[in-house]
Design a protein around this nucleic acid. Sequence first.
DNA 1: CAAGTTACCTGACGGC
DNA 2: TGCCGTCAGGTAACTT
Length: 279
Amino acid sequence: MPELPEVEVIRLGLLPYVLNREIVSVSCSGKRLRNEIPYQLLKERLVDSTFIKLSRRAKYLLFHTDRDDILIIHLGMTGQLGFFEPNEPLKKHDHMTIGFRSDKELRFNDTRRFGSILIYSETSMENLENSLFSHCGPEPFSPEFDGKYLHARARNKQQPVKNFIMDNRIVVGVGNIYANESLFAAGIHPLTRVNKITLADFTKLATKIQEILLWAIDCGGSTISDFLSASGNSGYFQANFKVYGKNGEPCVQCGTHLEKVVIGGRASFFCSKCQNSKC
DNA sequence: CAAGTTACCTGACGGC
DNA sequence: TGCCGTCAGGTAACTT
């Protein structure tokens, strides 16, 4: 489901509810997500503690506790977080519930179970950067992410640019939707081999990735079928899609029929006239 | 080693 | 109505 904008929208929505509230209970479905839910450890570390900070790294949400533990949630494709009255029945695919004193419960629901729940005890961001995130590239809004960086990382590579910008080792947070939209905005064909892309084009691409991700956050993310923010609202950035899912429709810039091609197993949409760089 | 493919899992949808 | 194939916002483990 979620790419960087959706995760960020969820983070912003959770903030007013999760900080500084006493955690009184943790329960789990017992089903395996991407990893086994560390139920015993969650209970030991979270109950009687409070979250004092909620941050994001790549597509992971990081709940920092007052004991220097970090609860880490990845939403996979279909993960959702929301608040529910304790007496409200669990839904199918609810996998974890965190109860707060005299307050609604935080519930994690994930139909396809591609998400993950981890807890790093008595750890720090620095430790995480050296373990869980050691393979992760920069955040798209970090100072080091720019055209020069992409150009340098692309040297000696010949993979299609769409795979390149979706590769977490290069830059985090860009998934299928925003990769398609960013490449359209930058006028670069998704199959272009990265070693053929000029510094100027990479500079434009880096800028468009940043602009589009920010714009999508402002719109509350994209809701294709089931994305909901923590407060239960759907996003509306999908109204601003120029190419994603628009196979056969006219290009908004030139009227040419948009095309679809599968790259790395993912649907890719483009305008052959506006994104005419060589493959 | 880089690039491409498959697997993980459930549900929605279209064709027959 | 139902069965079957295909597809879906992600990522890591495979294979080539």
